[in-house]
Design a binder for these strands. Structure first.
Length: 588
RNA sequence: CGGGGUGUAGCACAGCCUGGUAGUGCGCAAGCUUUGGGAGCUUGAAGUCGGGGGUUCGAAUCCCUCCACCCCGACCA
């Protein structure tokens, strides 16, 4: 296929000098200003020609890498009959995220938020023997999730385009191999896209996944918090990250408890009146000298199976709800203040683990406090000289949010925090769906076994935004050469008679070199063309003006560095090809 | 779901408090001049002032209501 040649004067590439005020993130503002997208509704966008081209280039890279791993592309419907989702239980469990509706016959349908059920149905109908496995199927398709809060343009839409892949294997070991193949393919994909990313340990969710990793694109505007180790390869989503402190302090807590029960140590637990105290800060103040956030207990309450559960943390630490949900085996949220009052019978500011009327879960670092204070489970009262093991007990489990500076759980070096955009997520699902949906194959012993599945997603439209987040400057986008909508933009600004011929000849030579070309043939002043070329972010710009043409030269400007060089017209195409090859270094 | 905010021309906004013929800049169309970093002058087109209801002689403006969109939060007792 010949590379494209587009004349700007005949194209729908609407650039805007100002961004709509709604667009706050650089990627959002630039994708509108550069004419990639327009908003249709909350979380709904059109891709205009420039945006579509970039998506096409991302798709090509994704397809090349997946096909290279033997994955096969399919296309599943965007509308799902409810029966499939009822089989897996997700018709209910998706909640409001699932957009449900009825057809003319009154049958329940949903806009597909993902496709595990349908692809599992393909497997159970079409795959029968272990001889057919492994199988990896994927599609590039529109998803709809009625997100509570879409934001940032393409970063979190309600409708978005996703590449989703699904693997079917004979057993867990084979599934892990498929998972590892995808991990490598994803690494190549994200590298080719020019992204600075980290592969991090991630929550595999309540859906029975045994292993998962996220491909996180580093960006200030990222919605996810990550921690990475400065010394070793440890990297994790903060939702699941642990720190070396957890193990160390579990040991310390045992020691502290022993020491405290010995003679002549900490005084007996004492009740103190704390009128009007409703939070940690005021409790510390009321207790007076020697009491600080980091030597007091903070006790939060969740309601689980109708009963209160106390969560005990060090006062200055933060609860990790994802870890807690894993411990409890179900998603939970903190009980409201009113609910706490009803369940425990005390103001939420005066809750504590001592004689708590329910299950008590203690973070190791809270248990490690040798001598501490807490609420008395009685409004306006607290306890001091509280010791774990002597005055209260509980299940010691890590439920704390890791912080920057904590020791790495693998090597002990300091952890640092980043923010990331989740660009991809890979899971080993196991037999969760295949069991529920009776998707079986026959193994070599003639036995019927459920497929061991994996699933692998990439947020295709989100990647457009993520790439811009990482590749822009004050003037506009700076596309990595691998995904740029065009390779070269030709900017004729000469009125000379030969200009049109030069433009035509040069653009033909560029196409022969395999480069796609955008010609800015608008009747605009040079400044306007330069500004737009920079806004569009096309990697290479060729300026054809009187200055150069008189000397038989073109001026070549690299978008990323801003460097300009003069090149003889006859050599220009070859020169640009070489520059383009240089820009593609590391992106193939 | 909770809180905050915004809806006036394609985009950015003023006008609203204190009711009286709907404005500015950019963009768009035409003309002349201009032409290496978002040109100048002239002329012109373009708005159900988010929708509905109410008050009033009269509503973009005041009141009620609905809708849409944006931001923050949804975890500290």
């Amino acid at each position: 296929m010949r590379p494209t040649l587009t004349r700007l004067s005949k194209s729908l590439l609407p650039s805007l000098r100002e961004a709509p005020k709604d667009a706050q993130l650089p990627s959002h503002a630039l994708s509108i200003r550069a004419g990639l997208i327009r908003q249709v509704g909350a979380g709904l966008y059109e891709l205009l020609p420039m945006g579509r081209k970039v998506l096409r280039h991302i798709e090509t890279i994704v397809r090349e890498e997946l096909d290279a791993e033997g994955a096969q592309e399919i296309l599943m419907p965007g509308v799902l009959p409810a029966e499939y989702l009822r089989e897996s239980g997700r018709w209910e469990s998706f909640g409001d995220v699932l957009c449900r509706f009825k057809d003319r016959k009154g049958a329940d349908l949903a806009l597909s938020p993902t496709h595990e059920e349908i692809v599992t149905d393909i497997a159970r109908r079409e795959l029968r023997s272990y001889r057919q496995l492994p199988v990896m199927l994927y599609q590039v398709q529109t998803k709809f999730r009625d997100e509570p809060r879409p934001r940032g343009g393409l970063l979190r839409g309600r409708e978005f385009i996703m590449k989703d892949a699904y693997s079917f294997d004979v057993d867990e070991a084979a599934a892990l191999q498929s998972y590892e193949r995808m991990r490598k393919a994803y690494t190549r994909i994200f590298t080719r896209l020019g992204l600075d990313f980290r592969v991090v340990d991630a929550d595999s969710g309540a859906m029975g996944g045994s292993r998962s990793a996220e491909f996180q694109i580093l960006a200030r505007s990222g919605e996810d918090k990550l921690v990475t180790c400065s010394a070793c390869a440890y990297a994790a989503n903060a939702e699941v990250a642990t720190s070396g402190t957890a193990e160390a302090s579990a040991a310390a807590s045992a020691t502290a408890a022993t020491a405290a029960t010995g003679p002549g140590s900490i005084p007996a637990m004492t009740r103190v009146a704390t009128p009007g105290v409703t939070d940690m800060q005021s409790a510390i103040a009321a207790l007076g000298e020697g009491h600080t956030l980091d030597n007091a207990l903070k006790t939060l309450v969740v309601e689980h199976q109708g009963k209160p559960v106390a969560l005990v943390l060090r006062g200055d630490h933060e609860l990790n709800l994802v870890k807690l949900s894993t411990v409890l085996g179900a998603p939970v949220a903190l009980a409201s203040r009113e609910r706490v009052q009803a369940l425990v019978g005390a103001n939420p500011g005066s809750i504590g683990p001592v004689n708590f009327p329910g299950r008590v879960i203690v973070d190791p670092q809270a248990a490690a406090l040798a001598h501490t204070s807490c609420g008395a489970n009685e409004t306006d009262a607290h306890l001091v000289h509280v010791v774990y093991g002597r005055d209260y007990e509980g299940e010691i489990t890590d439920i704390r949010m890791v912080e920057a500076g904590d020791p790495c759980p693998r090597c002990g070096a300091s952890l640092s925090e980043h923010r990331g955009i989740e660009g991809g997520h890979i899971f080993v699902l196991g037999t969760h769906y295949s069991k529920k949906m009776s998707a079986h194959f026959t193994d070599e012993n003639g036995e019927e076994l459920p497929f061991v599945m994996g699933c692998y997603g990439i947020g295709m439209t989100r990647l457009i935004a993520a790439i811009i987040e990482q590749h822009h400057d004050a003037a506009g986008i700076r596309w990595p050469a691998s995904v740029a909508p065009f390779d070269v933009v030709l900017v004729p600004i000469s009125k000379r008679a030969e200009s049109e011929e030069v433009v035509t000849a040069l653009s033909e030579s560029l196409r022969e070199q395999g480069l796609s070309v955008l010609i800015d043939d608008r009747n605009e002043r040079p400044g306007v063309k330069f500004k737009d070329a920079e806004l569009f972010g096309i990697p290479l710009r060729v300026t054809l003006g009187d200055r150069g043409l008189e000397a038989g030269q073109a001026e070549v400007t690299e978008r990323r560095s801003g460097e300009t060089t003069a090149v003889a017209l006859g050599d220009a195409a070859a020169h640009l090809k070489r520059m383009h090859l240089g820009l593609m270094q590391g992106l193939e």
